[in-house]
Simulated scan of single mutants.
Amino acid sequence: MRTHPLHAPIAVPGMIHSLRALLSRRSTRSLTAAEREDLAQAQLRATRPIISGVLLCGAVLLAIIAVFDLSHVTPSIGYPVWAQLLAAFGVAACAAGVARLPQWQHRLMLILAGTLLTGIFMSMPLPGATGQLALRTGLFQLLPLALMALTVRPMSLLALALLIVVMAQLRIVLYGAPGTGSALYWLYTLMTIGFGLVLAGYRTDFAVSAWQMRRRLVRQAHTDELTGLLNRNGWTERAIALHAQALAAGRPVAVVVLDIDYFKRINDEHGHDGGDTVLRRLGDLMRARTGANGCAARIGGEEFAVLLDGDDAVAAQAFAERLRREFRKAQGAVVATLSAGIAGHLPGESLRDQMRRADQALYEAKREGRDRVHVAGIP
C-alpha cells in the first residue's frame, strides 16, 4: 500500500512518453528533442490566433442561437436568453485569453472551458426541454473537431478527446440513449475524435515540411556553403546579438579578424580548387576551435572573423596563435599561412568599432611580415 505514492511519479512520465509515441508522426521521429520543441513552438505561434478565432466563432454561434430563441425561430432547450448571452461572453473571454496567455497549459484550460460552455448551452438541455438536440449536438461537434485539428501537443489532444467522450456520456446519463440507439451515437462521437486526430496529423506533417524548408532557407541565407561557417549576413545577425549579451552580462568579449596570406597567389598556382581546399580546411578548424561561446564567419573572400564571448585580448591571442599553428600544419600539397588581428572590448565600444580596431591590427600583422598575430593597442 505504501508503494503506490512512490510509483505514481514514475508512472505519469511513462504514460506521457507512451502517449507521445502513440500520437507522434513519422515526419517528426527523425527530429531531436530540441528540434521537436522548436517545431512545437512554431506551430503554437501559428495556431494560437486560429484557435482563438474558433472559440470566438463558438461564442458568436451561442449568441446567434440566443437571438433565435428570443425570436422563437428555433425551439429553446430551456436556458434563458440572458444565460446564453452570458455563456457567449464567457467563451469570448476564453478566446481572448488564448490569444494573450503565454503558457500553453493555461491556454489549454481556457480551450477546455470554452468548449465545455459551448457544449452545455448548445447541446445539453435543461430537464424537460429536448428541442432539436441532434441538430444542436452536430453543430457543436464542429467546434472540438476544429480545435483537435489545430492542437499541437499530445496532452491537449488527449484532453479534448476526453472532454468529447465525457460530454457524450453525460448526455446519455442525463437524457438517455437517442432514438437511433447508442451504437450510432458513439460511432458519431468516435468519428469526430478520429477525424480530429487525422486532421491534426496531416497538419503536423505540413508543419514539419514548412519548418524544415524554413530552416534550410535560413541556413542558406546565413551560412557560407564552402566552409560551413556563417556568411556576412549570418555574422551581422549572430555576432551583434552575442556581443550585446556579453556586454549586458558584464563578460569580456574579443574579436579576431583573420586573413589567408597571399591567397591570390594560391589560386594562381593551384587553381580555384586548391584555393577552395585551403578555405575548407580553415573553416573546419574554426568550427572545431570556436565552440559554443562564440561565432565564426567567412566575411569576405579569404577574410574570416571570430567573436569570442567571455575572452579578453590575451585569451583571444592564445586562440589565434593556436589556430595559426594548426592551420599551417594541416596543409597538404598547398601550404598557406594566416595573419590575425585582435581587439579586446573597450568601454562604450560597439561591435563595428571593435572590428575596425581588429582590422587595423590585421593590417599591422601583414605589414610586419604576415604569418603572425597582432593585438590592437588602446587608442
Rank of each mutant, 00 (worst) to 15 (best):
A134I: 01
R203G: 04
S27L: 09
R20D: 14
H4D: 07
E303L: 01
A95V: 00
D268H: 06
D311C: 14
I77G: 13
G201I: 00
L279K: 01
E35M: 08
F89Q: 13
A340G: 10
W235C: 12
V73W: 12
G78Y: 05
Q169M: 14
V73C: 12
G97K: 01
V60K: 00
L285C: 02
A149M: 15
A365H: 05
R107D: 02
Y188M: 12
T32M: 11
R26H: 10
I51Q: 15
R265G: 09
T118N: 13
I65D: 12
H270N: 08
V335W: 15
I120T: 05
L101W: 09
S76C: 06
Y262H: 12
I299H: 00
R26Y: 09
A244G: 04
A34Q: 15
V373N: 04
H72W: 13
V60N: 00
E237W: 13
T118H: 11
L142C: 11
P125R: 02
R328Q: 13
A292C: 10
Q105A: 14
R2I: 07
R232P: 00
G348N: 04
D309Y: 13
V255H: 01
R298T: 01
L143E: 09
T74C: 12
L229H: 07
M1R: 09
T137W: 04
F319L: 07
A42F: 11
T47R: 12
M109K: 08
A221T: 06
A63D: 09
A292D: 10
L157M: 12
D284H: 03
R232V: 03
I16R: 15
P178H: 02
I111M: 05
F68A: 14
I50L: 15
H106P: 04
L23N: 01
Q103P: 00
T74P: 08
L133N: 07
L135M: 05
R352S: 08
G228C: 14
T227N: 05
R45S: 13
L116H: 06
V165M: 13
G250D: 03
F319I: 09
Q132L: 14
V67C: 14
E225W: 08
V278K: 06
A168V: 09
A46W: 10
T189Y: 04
W235T: 12
A343G: 12
I10A: 11
L229D: 07
L56Y: 05
T227Y: 08
Q41I: 06
T115L: 02
Y175N: 08
H345S: 13
A358I: 06
Q41L: 10
Q132P: 12
R372W: 03
L184P: 05
Q105Y: 09
R281D: 04
R324D: 02
G348P: 04
R20T: 14
G201T: 00
V256R: 02
R280W: 05
I77L: 11
L174K: 14
A134C: 02
P80L: 14
A159K: 03
A207F: 07
L229I: 06
V334N: 09
A177T: 05
